[in-house]
Amino acid sequence: MHLLIVGATGTLGRQVARRALDEGHSVRCLVRSYKKAAFLKEWGAELVQGNLCRPESLPPALVGIDAVIDAATSRPTDSLSIKEVDWQGQVSLIQAVKAAGIQRLIFFSILNAEQYPHVPLMEIKHCTELFLAESGLDYTILRCCGFLQGLIGQYAIPILERQAVWVMGETEPIAYMDTQDIAKFAIRALSVPATLRQTFPLVGTRAWNPYEIIRLCERLSGREAKITRMPLNLLRTVRRTARWFQWGWNLADRLAFAEVIASGKPLNAPMEEVYTTFGLDPAATTTLETYLQDYFSRILQKLKELDYEKTGRKTASARKAQ
């Protein structure tokens, strides 16, 4: 199958591209920068320059495509706003896909998006879901809630470097999932008719709160975490302040997501029927424990090797000095 993947340089998109290539699909990636997407070309993907916020760049990228997988979303550091990328850009893509005569589109959304109309990203994701449902396309919506990959920068690295781990006092448990496992569902959806015009949650094996993750990281790393608690009211103040500056609008909208993880509702969902529909084995899903254990094992081994090399160089220098 000839696939166009949008957002392929992102944390999730790159895993979707990798999985699609591994399963023998022909992959084209819509990218803003050839330089930043060079690794995709090395993997075997075709690169075409374009931008969701430039609708005229979309039709050429869709020529000869059988299905589109949309993993694009704005980033806090982007110059473009959430509204420009996650709403206007997505609408342009859906319209371009339909105009090109392509019927199949897979879209990544966020779990429980409809429950938070006051949170910009959630409201926009939900509106995009509704727009896609009314488009007439054979869509599949996959609703994620958190990536295991994000835990490295949030917890693992600060603990290893003896830096502060920031935790909101009222954070609810989240069922994080490995992006490689999410990619499996996305590619499998292409060949499972039961996924047409359906919406599915995609969550990990269990929901974890921050303190459980911190304790696990402490045990695996052998180091004690320095926890700094941030009251939700302080985060709201930062958000309001950021709204005063144009450069802070995107950041402020992202900070609003804190309202979701402090809502009193765990980000989790039952997955039994999802695994059955997709024909995937739940036992093959990466657990948070396994993911972090693998990370710390590799990092600690690397640190030991570096320390050994450093000690060896010192010993050699001492011998030369004698």
Rank of each mutant, 00 (worst) to 15 (best):
K184H: 15
I174Y: 03
A175K: 01
A207Q: 02
R229S: 12
G146C: 11
E172V: 13
A189V: 07
K184N: 15
G169P: 03
A189S: 14
T228W: 14
E212Y: 04
T195L: 14
T179N: 11
T171M: 15
L202M: 11
S191R: 12
L220M: 12
L142Q: 05
C217T: 05
L196E: 14
L202K: 04
R143D: 12
R215C: 14
D178S: 14
A175H: 02
C217E: 09
L151P: 00
G150S: 10
E218D: 08
S221L: 15
G146P: 04
T205Y: 07
C144N: 10
E218Y: 08
G150Q: 06
E224W: 12
G146M: 09
S221I: 12
I187N: 02
P231C: 02
R206V: 06
W208D: 00
E212K: 01
R162K: 15
F200R: 04
I182R: 02
L202Q: 05
T140P: 09
L216Q: 10
R197M: 13
I152A: 02
L196K: 05
I213G: 01
W208F: 11
A225Y: 09
K184C: 15
R223W: 11
I214H: 07
K226V: 13
I159W: 12
R219N: 14
E224D: 06
I141A: 13
T205E: 15
R206H: 10
E218H: 06
